[in-house]
Design a protein around this nucleic acid. Sequence first.
DNA 1: GTGGTTTTATGCAAAATGTCATATTCCAAT
DNA 2: ATTGGAATATGACATTTTGCATAAAACCAC
Lengths: 231, 231
Amino acid sequence: MKLSKDIVNCKSCIYRNLLYEMLSEEEYEKVNEARTEMIYDRGEQMIMEGSEVDEFMYLRKGLVKMYKTNSNGKDQILSINKPGDFINLLSIFSKTTQQYSVTALEETHVCSVKLETIKELIKSNSDFALRVMNRMSYIADEIIQKRFEIDQRQVKGRVAYMLQFLAEHIYYKNEFRMPITRRELGELISMTTENTIRTMSEFKKDGIIDMDGKNIHIVDFNRLKKVCEMG
Amino acid sequence: MKLSKDIVNCKSCIYRNLLYEMLSEEEYEKVNEARTEMIYDRGEQMIMEGSEVDEFMYLRKGLVKMYKTNSNGKDQILSINKPGDFINLLSIFSKTTQQYSVTALEETHVCSVKLETIKELIKSNSDFALRVMNRMSYIADEIIQKRFEIDQRQVKGRVAYMLQFLAEHIYYKNEFRMPITRRELGELISMTTENTIRTMSEFKKDGIIDMDGKNIHIVDFNRLKKVCEMG
DNA sequence: GTGGTTTTATGCAAAATGTCATATTCCAAT
DNA sequence: ATTGGAATATGACATTTTGCATAAAACCAC
């Protein structure tokens, strides 16, 4: 992890309107000063489950996984997050320790603001408070809805769902490089590594996708959707 | 559904300190006036997925289930909620429609405050805003953590987990009357009705629980915990 | 009370999923 | 370039879970 050298002002940040649009000039400055921007390499752990919560963090660039390690040492991945996501917004107001770990899946830039500063802004600017609530509500809902989608499907449907999700909501195209291993994909949809691999091989044999290692090409989106729908 | 006749003042409500403790006298009055208390019978639907969000609701008495109906008409239960829980806090700030349905499992009293009023309080009282955030954060976390617990277990572990949960967090004793059918229990832990019933029969045969219809008695808590731990 | 519907219950065959073993490929550190 | 460890791949087999059938018991509306 290292500090970013080219300091970007919040005003020119493309994610500014997600959160800071209603701040006054003065409040803006406050965030700008309290803010640090960090860069993490692929594979670097950014947040460790159980560590202290004292910063409010969001992605400016990159991709991360949020996960939990259970008592048997196995990871369960909660979600894959992209820029604009607030990676610890759920723990921040009710817990003193991080509830989930976060690791970078590629080079990732993170903005980090002292929690104290955010709380001051919430107190001084109620529109900002409502916006933070809006984002919290949205994030929680997204995670819960996604768990629902996964839980109601069986293996093939789950893999299909995730491939579709990656294509439509992360990469916005039918061809992409998998940001995670097959094991991690399994951890994301609650199934074994072997079954994950087998299912993807099957999709390839059936002509639904084409793949070469981590490179995925969804050849027949309609059929993928169909598998996704019937579970 | 009917309006409650014996109007209870918020000040004497036992759940007052969950949310309203930092309100001024004036703000208190505002809530009190904007508030309606409703009584729902067992089986009555209180919130319909897709309906408009315009009230902030919380339980004063009773038990409810929050659930979603999927495209095949099957329900998935998200959580069982008891007094003090805010049954639509997750949808309220990011969505204009309810994301989940809520139905009473027994006679249930609900306090309902116009969303507009709550938003005004958030604007006028920043400590209240922080408290609302704290509750949102807490609720989201609880739901997500519970999903994790369920997803990492298989059938026996899931049933054991839920029985333990009911005993320890809903009824506070080893003997209780199941508030839901076996089908609903299945909907809660993502398994079929048949397997749910079979697993409970097995627990009975093994001497872990005793049961007669909906009456459950956890005879051997240690063994239940063991089943719960090994998945 | 009566009749109809839902819930609980259990058996059995089929399907899905997990486990273990083994081989090959890929990737990163030296 | 070499090498060790992780990731991908696949088969065989065990176990788990589902799906369907059927029946008794419990519950509800009239």
